[in-house]
Amino acid sequence: MDSPQSAHSAAAKTALRDQVRAARRRRPPDASAEVAAAVAEVALGWGPVRDAATVAAYVSVGSEPGTGLLLEALVAAGTRVVVPVVRPDRDLDWTVYTGPDDLAPAVRGLLEPSGPRLGVDAVRTADVVLAPGLAVSPAGDRLGQGGGYYDRVLPRVPAQTPVAIVLFDDEVGLDVPADPHDVRVGFVLTASGVRRLGPLEG
């Protein structure tokens, strides 16, 4: 049974998700295209991504900040890109991203490659992880979509591996409710740049 504190946190997270999703739906399509281009430029100029042999990323869908241009640029540069595939047990497997032509519709409105599955621990092979989300606090508390997938993924990422959440600028620095099991992220990547997160930030 959930404790009163965790129940309160869950309600607060739901309210914040609703708020951010509503704001995302109001963004004009042309602005989203500009953000996708800027996100790709920023990511490719960030040292951990620029120097990585393997990048763990994701295929954006809907109103998320677009990652398509970034994924294409990484593949074109010869970088190995792994992206998540949802398993029936609500965990995430991983597969190599080869291009948009290999994507197929999946659960929860996602798009997934059809290549061989690499296993849940494949994220450990990445030199940097780019994670989706809805908001982040100055301390690095990440608000996800509510499925709990990255609650399983992030604890598997080695401590020295940089993890950045990809967001719109106005989703950074929000008061994100956190539970003891939540894993903080060290960076946020937006169209404006990459920013380190942590207890001294803000």
Rank of each mutant, 00 (worst) to 15 (best):
Phe168Gln: 12
Ser3Asp: 07
Arg108Asp: 11
Glu171Pro: 00
Pro113Tyr: 06
Gly119Phe: 05
Thr79Glu: 04
Leu143Asn: 11
Ala122Cys: 02
Ala52Lys: 12
Leu70Gln: 09
Ala12Lys: 13
Gly45Val: 07
Asp93Tyr: 01
Arg24Gln: 15
Ser32Val: 06
Pro158Val: 06
Pro105Phe: 08
Ser63Gly: 00
Pro65Asn: 09
Leu16Lys: 12
Gln5Lys: 02
Leu143Ser: 09
Glu171Asp: 07
Tyr150Trp: 14
His8Lys: 14
Val82Asp: 03
Gly66Gln: 10
Val123His: 12
Asp151Ile: 05
Val49His: 09
Thr98Arg: 15
Leu74Ala: 07
Ser60Trp: 12
His181Tyr: 14
Gly47Thr: 14
Ala76Pro: 03
Leu197Ile: 07
Thr79Phe: 03
Pro113Val: 02
Ala43Met: 04
Pro113Cys: 06
Leu74Phe: 02
Pro28Arg: 14
Ala37Phe: 01
Val35Arg: 14
Ala104Glu: 15
Asp151Glu: 03
Leu167Asn: 13
Thr67His: 13
Arg142Tyr: 01
Val185Gly: 12
Leu189Ser: 12
Leu103Arg: 12
Asp2Phe: 02
Leu167Gln: 09
Gly99Arg: 12
Ala56Tyr: 08
Ala40Ile: 00
Tyr149Lys: 03
Thr14Trp: 01
Pro155Met: 11
Leu154Cys: 11
Ser137Lys: 06
Ala53Thr: 05
Gly146Gln: 10
Gly133Lys: 11
Asp89Ser: 04
Ala10Met: 04
Arg90Gly: 00
Leu134Cys: 08
Ala12Leu: 14
Val136Glu: 15
Ala53Met: 04
Ser60His: 12
Lys13Tyr: 08
Asp18Trp: 01
Val107Asn: 10
Thr161Phe: 08
Ser3Glu: 04
Arg124Gly: 07
His181Val: 06
Val96Ser: 10
Ala7Phe: 00
Gly140Glu: 13
Val83Tyr: 06
Arg195Thr: 15
Arg25Pro: 00
Ala11Gln: 14
Val185Trp: 09
Arg117Phe: 00
Ser63Lys: 08
Gln5Cys: 01
Arg195Asn: 00
Gly47Asn: 10
Tyr149Gln: 01
Val86Gln: 02
Asp151Arg: 06
Asp2Tyr: 02
Leu70Met: 05
Ala15His: 05
Gly146Met: 08
Val194Asn: 10
Ala53Gln: 14
Ser9Met: 08
Ala76Met: 07
